[in-house]
């Protein structure tokens, strides 16, 4: 009897997907209703339901709602980037942050803001474009360093190269910020460490469109991406131009990381954790993980953002602190599992 490849997966996808959507809606509601770091329905949702005042409408439309949408989009972009990087490098530790790709994007944006502050006036597309350039350069540098001895990219080579590039970008960012004026420094550092509160609708619309384009491209390549499980030669033997697909995947992963950086700075670990959670839930098939990962990533960042606003209310933590607090133990667990597997 014929059994579909993803029979186990199909049984889980819809319930898991529905649960993720429901939880996301709930957290969007929580985020919209939050008032001074607390879920205050008297000041938040009751006013919304009864008909918000002009000032409340402004807060909702230009503050809380774009912030929630930004969390969803950034989480989606980072988790897609991580899923893609882990799949094509066959490396469970690959993530745009750990590999220095986000660092490259962040450095490019900080450099632009420091050296040419008025460049932002040229249009909302400039920051994502510059971030993409930085991300791509960092990605190419990591791959080049990882292959320095010739041959295939190893797990250790990739991580060490990522650490080197990350450290280099962090040092340059620190240097540029040390020379920035105090007001600009405050704004840039809040954005750099995961600030979701600075984004305009026009920027989000552009990010959403590019994200959708990347997702459609990846979904059309999903069955080919699966063949990386056969190795590069194995993928070629089933009719996949593996080298071309690897190159394109690197560009798309960099673009996705750059989109995220352009909105919310350097957010670590989302791209690392989410692909693992998704694969645990529904298996490894890209045709299934690609539709689910963006929603799980969005949900994680929504939760982290609400946590960042609530933890020390009325002060706000950069959301990157919360994702790092969640991500570090997960990274340690993954590393230890990898090392146990090698023995």
């Amino acid at each position: 009897m014929a059994v579909r490849l993803s029979a186990r997966v199909s049984a889980y996808l819809w319930p898991v997907g529905a649960a993720v959507l429901a939880l996301s809606a709930l957290w969007v509601a929580v985020g919209l209703g939050m008032h001074s770091g607390a879920v205050a329905f008297d000041a938040g949702w009751i006013e919304i339901i009864q008909g918000p005042s002009c000032s409340m409408r402004d807060i909702l439309l230009h503050g809380r709602l774009p912030r929630a949408v930004a969390a969803l989009l950034v989480g989606a972009a980072l988790s897609l980037s991580g899923l893609l990087l882990q799949g094509v490098t066959r490396n469970p530790l690959a993530d745009p942050f750990l590999l220095g790709i986000s660092g490259g994007a962040g450095l490019a944006v900080v450099a632009l803001q420091s050296l040419w502050p008025r460049a932002v006036d040229l249009g909302p597309w400039l920051i994502p474009a510059v971030a993409f350039g930085g991300a791509l350069l960092a990605m190419l540098a990591v791959l080049h360093l990882a292959q320095a001895g010739g041959g295939r990219v190893s797990l250790l080579g990739l991580i060490l190269s990522g650490v080197v590039i990350n450290a280099f970008c962090a040092a340059l960012i620190t240097f540029l910020m040390a020379r920035a004026d105090p007001f600009r420094l405050r704004v840039t550092s809040t954005w750099l460490y995961g600030g979701l509160g600075f984004v305009a609708w026009s920027h989000l619309l552009g990010v959403a469109l590019v994200l959708l384009g990347c997702w459609l491209f990846l979904r059309a390549q999903a069955h080919r991406l699966n063949t990386f499980g056969l190795g590069m030669e194995g993928a070629a033997s089933v009719g996949v131009d593996a080298r071309m697909l690897l190159r394109r995947s690197a560009y798309v992963a960099s673009l996705l990381a750059a989109l995220a950086v352009s909105v919310a700075g350097l957010l670590g670990y989302v791209g690392l954790i989410v692909p693992h959670v998704v694969r645990l839930a529904v298996g490894r098939d890209f045709r299934v993980t690609l539709p689910l990962a963006p929603f799980v990533g969005g949900l994680l960042l929504l939760v982290a953002d609400v946590g960042a606003r609530m933890a020390f209310a009325p002060e706000e933590l950069p959301v990157g602190v919360i994702t790092a607090v969640i991500g570090c133990p997960v990274l340690l667990a993954l590393l230890s599992a990898q090392l146990r597997g090698r023995r």
Binding site: L5, R90, T227, G229, G231, V238, G239, R284, D285
Partner: peptide
């Protein structure tokens, strides 16, 4: 260089790519 986490069915199905 196979991904050893693939199941037999998943591996065989990749032949249909």
């Amino acid at each position: 260089q196979l991904d050893l986490e693939l199941t037999v069915r998943e591996l065989v199905a990749l032949g249909r790519t």
